[in-house]
Every structure is written in structure tokens, then in C-alpha cells.
């Protein structure tokens, strides 16, 4: 059992500081949130013990909560099923056909380093109604598709999808980069061997690239899913959760309850739900990928 030939206290000394930080910055706040969630507190003044009333209200009595969960899931699942396959496709194309891929990959990556506020404002002007200078609507108008024009960000039916679209655009490059790197790490001799056996082009991708990239793909999936669950800034900049909660997600609902309605305790309860939800999602993703990895390796 003595795999590590170091004394336990040495391990403790090296692991300790990191662990301490991690515990302080991650676990303790979570526990504090759970604790705060048990209070009726406005975040400023005195608090009052409320037990599980906040959690009960959240699950059964809040008209905004479940729609917010729904919007959050929409965001997570749509970015998963649209963004990642496209990113993989782009990554495959780049690695196969582009000799010096760095420039292209960097270009795709550019939106990721831009501030979400900048991107939000940019897309707001793109998505605005034509009368306010919105680009998409003006183009639709010009090509005779006036019936298709909408006030994308303020019609409850479309607002959520518009915001999701912006997320897809912004983070595509991120996943292209991850998956491109993954593909680069697949040894070239495997492809050579496959070519001799007659597997070329997309056939090679189907039987070599996809199975071998599964572990990397998993990282993409987890990052994209958790990122979507926690997305907040984009919502705040573009619609502030409006019109009338049509684009409210869990994180923004939590924020508004805590700081605008001054229900800090209730906001903490939502935060707890978000933590549990994210953990559950991560576990599910891990289980699925463990199966996949077993099958392919």
C-alpha cells in the first residue's frame, strides 16, 4: 500500500495549502449558502430562522422557478446538441485540410476572450428591430422576408433562443480548440494503418477520430453543460431576465431574488439547488462517458 515513498506529513504539507484554499473558497461558501437558505433574511438587517420554508416555496410555490429551470436546461441541452457536434466537425475539417491551423483556430477562439458585455451589446444591436437599426431584421427586410422579422430579444417566444444563439456563437471556438487539440494528439500512424486497410476520409473519422476523442469530448461536454447552467452575465446584459421572466435562468433568478427583492435567504436556497443540479449533471455525464469509454477502449 506504500505506493508513495514519502512520509504522511510531507503529503499533508504539500496538499494542505491547496486543500485549505479549496475548502475555504468552495465548500465553505456552499455550506454557508445552505445555512443562509434556512433564514428569512433581507441580506442587510436582522435574520429570522425559517427552516425549510424557502426550499418548500422554491419547489412548490414559485411561479418563476420551474420556468427558469426549464430555460436553463434548454440552454444547456441546445448548446450541447448543436455546439459540440459542429465544433467537432469544424475541428476535423481544420485538422485534415488546413496546414497551418493556428491562425484559423485563434480566429474562432477570439470571441471567447471578448468580454460578455461587449458581445452582449454587439448582439443586441444585431438583433434589434429594424426600426432601431437591427442588422438581421434589416437584412430580412431587404431580401423580402419581412414576415420573418421579429423583435428577437423582446418577444417572449424568441428571446431565449436569441440568447442561446449568442452563446453558441461565442463559445464555438472554445470547443473547436479543445477538440482540435484532441485530434492532434491522435497518432498519425493509426490513420496510416487505417488507410492501408481502406478506411479513409469520414470513414476514418467514424472509426478512429470519434472513438479516440471521447475523453476530450467529455471535457467539452462537462464544460459546456456546467457553463450553460451557470450562465448569467449574458442574460443580465441582453435582457435582464425580461421581458417578464421570459429569459430568466436559475442564476439570474437567484441574483434578482437576493439583491433586488432583498430575499437573500431565498436566493441562497436557489443557489443550493443550482449546486445540487450541477453536481447531478456532472455525475450523469461521467456515468454516460464511462460507459462510452469502456465500449471504445
Amino acid at each position: 500500500m506504500k505506493v508513495l515513498r514519502v512520509k504522511p506529513w510531507t503529503i499533508a504539507a504539500f496538499v494542505g495549502p491547496g486543500l485549505l484554499l479549496y475548502v475555504c473558497l468552495v465548500f465553505v461558501p456552499i455550506l454557508v449558502s445552505v445555512y443562509n437558505g434556512m433564514f428569512d433574511w433581507n441580506g442587510i438587517g436582522a435574520s429570522e430562522w425559517a427552516g425549510f420554508a424557502n426550499f418548500h416555496k422554491m419547489l412548490f410555490n414559485d411561479k418563476v422557478f420551474w420556468p427558469a429551470v426549464n430555460h436553463t436546461l434548454q440552454m444547456a441541452i441546445l448548446s450541447l446538441v448543436i455546439q459540440l457536434p459542429v465544433a467537432l466537425f469544424v475541428a476535423i475539417l481544420i485538422s485534415r485540410h488546413v496546414r497551418r491551423a493556428n491562425f484559423l483556430v485563434t480566429s474562432y477562439f477570439l470571441p471567447v476572450i471578448l468580454s460578455v458585455v461587449v458581445i452582449g451589446q454587439l448582439w443586441k444591436t444585431i438583433l434589434n428591430p429594424a426600426s432601431q437599426g437591427g442588422m438581421i431584421n434589416q437584412i430580412l427586410d431587404k431580401i423580402g422576408l419581412h414576415a420573418w422579422t421579429h423583435s428577437w430579444l423582446t418577444e417572449p417566444k424568441y428571446a431565449m433562443y436569441s440568447i442561446i444563439l449568442v452563446g453558441l456563437w461565442q463559445y464555438l471556438g472554445y470547443h473547436v480548440l479543445i477538440q482540435f487539440t484532441g485530434i492532434q494528439n491522435i497518432p498519425a500512424d493509426i490513420y496510416e494503418a487505417a488507410r492501408i486497410d481502406g478506411a479513409d476520409g469520414f470513414k476514418a473519422d467514424r472509426y478512429i477520430t470519434v472513438p479516440m476523442i471521447v475523453p476530450i469530448f467529455k471535457i467539452s461536454v462537462v464544460l459546456s453543460f456546467i457553463g450553460s447552467l451557470q450562465s448569467f452575465d449574458r442574460i443580465l446584459v441582453m435582457t435582464a431576465g425580461g421581458p417578464a421572466h421570459a429569459t430568466e435562468v436559475l442564476a439570474s433568478h437567484m441574483y434578482y431574488q437576493s439583491f433586488l427583492s432583498l430575499k437573500y435567504g431565498y436566493g441562497s436556497a436557489i443557489a443550493c439547488f443550482l449546486v445540487v443540479f450541477s453536481l447531478a449533471a456532472t455525475v450523469v455525464v461521467n456515468l454516460v462517458f464511462n460507459q462510452l469509454e469502456k465500449r471504445y477502449t
Binding site: 433581507n42 423582446t154 417572449p156 421581458p243 417578464a244 421572466h245 421570459a246 433586488l260 427583492s261 432583498l262
Partner: peptide
């Protein structure tokens, strides 16, 4: 009115702009 009521009011009125 207190912040909780005020927020519900603000949302309710904002909703009139879109439906």
C-alpha cells in the same frame, strides 16, 4: 412598498409591454 412587492409589480408591468 417593500422590495419584494415592488419587484413583482415591476415584472407585472413589464409584461404588459409584450403581451
Amino acid at each position: 412598498m417593500n422590495p419584494g412587492t415592488a419587484q413583482a409589480h415591476l415584472t407585472s408591468i413589464q409584461n404588459l409591454f409584450v403581451s
